[in-house]
């Protein structure tokens, strides 16, 4: 545990730098975006010349990137994240209002996905007797991985019987197949290790084998995958919330991008970067501390770690 915290703490400066640079990167992109200096409010015929001049002055201010950064840092010292032009509200307040919905979805979606993935992966990983069910689960997960998350959201909204389950169900459908495939492969590899075979030959119960032999050997890659799945869930939150019209951070990010809302987009970019980087840093710390700490089941851990590294491309493949 101590090793994990020390590994994690070592990555915190990197996380902070990435977060700051992602905000700067977003600001730069917005600054040089075509039409960035034009405000569509100028087209409003009800505004008088003075209002239009004020809007132009605001835009001109935003046009100077250095002054925007200085202004932002100055406000940040007082806990002010800026003002959202498109939502007509302070950014801090918008984030406070929208964050609980996203946190709720992530919590329920991830819990549901993990329970479903583990519930299916444990029997299929432990035994090859359920070949038909295993194949059905593989086909179903393959099918779900072949559909974009936005489409899953559409289909769930179309179905009156599924509409009640709503957003949480879409999260589960989007995340569970990704988690299931990796977990199943990890468990299958762990179950094929010789200590497990020996335990089975000695007549030790399956539950005990799972708890005492298999889970400790795959614990580190599973925890790393859990941290990674937070980043995946954050990625799928955007289309799901936008389509299901949930007042969360994902929908807010989509609206901010569409309306090119400078301060809102910069803050959301930094928030997303911070969450993703923290999740990835935690995954890295777990992986590296897991590799160092567990000499007792070295062979099995090495095997499962290698397996998890092999599965990484699948697990870390961006969820769309």
């Amino acid at each position: 545990m101590l090793l994990f915290f020390s590994n994690f703490a070592r990555q915190l400066p990197r996380v902070a730098i990435l977060t700051v640079f992602s905000g700067l990167f977003c600001g730069l992109m917005m600054h040089y975006a075509p039409g960035a200096q034009v405000d569509d409010r100028e087209l409003n015929l009800r505004l008088n010349q003075q209002s239009i001049e004020t809007i132009r002055a605001e835009k001109a201010m935003q046009g100077r990137l250095g002054s925007v950064v200085a202004q932002y840092i100055g406000r940040l010292r007082h806990g002010d994240l800026g003002y959202s032009q498109s939502q007509s509200a302070p950014v801090g307040e918008l984030i406070r209002q929208n964050a609980p919905a996203t946190a709720h979805e992530l919590l329920f979606g991830l819990t549901g996905s993990w329970l479903l993935a583990l519930g299916l992966a444990i029997p299929f990983g432990a035994s090859s007797a359920y070949k038909v069910f295993d194949m059905a689960a593989a086909l179903l997960s393959g099918l779900l991985l072949s559909l974009p998350t936005a489409l899953l959201a559409y289909l769930c909204l179309s179905s009156t019987s599924l509409a009640g389950a709503g957003v949480d169900l879409v999260f589960v459908l989007a995340l569970a197949p990704r988690i299931f495939r990796v977990v199943k492969n990890l468990l299958r590899e762990a179950y094929s290790a010789s200590p497990v075979q020996m335990c089975r030959a000695l007549g030790i119960g399956e539950l005990r084998i799972l708890v005492r032999q298999v889970l400790p050997s795959v614990g580190s890659p599973l925890l790393a995958l859990a941290a990674t799945s937070v980043a995946m869930a954050l990625g799928v939150a955007i289309p799901i919330e936008s389509i299901c019209d949930v007042a969360g951070l994902g929908r807010l990010a989509w609206q901010a991008a569409l309306s090119r809302d400078l301060f809102l987009l910069i803050n959301l970019t930094m928030l997303m970067a911070l969450t993703t980087s923290l999740a990835m840093a935690a995954a890295d710390a777990i992986r590296s501390s897991g590799q160092r700490v567990s000499p007792k089941s070295s062979r099995m851990t090495q095997r499962t770690s290698a397996m998890s590294a092999g599965s990484e491309s699948l697990a870390l493949e961006p969820a769309v």
Partner: peptide, 21 residues
């Protein structure tokens, strides 16, 4: 590369597409 990977890919894609005409 780390900077690009620190953001959810879909978020990056949406933002960049929305910033273009």
């Amino acid at each position: 590369a780390d900077l690009c990977l620190s953001l959810p890919w879909l978020f990056l894609l949406l933002t960049m597409r929305a910033l273009l005409p």
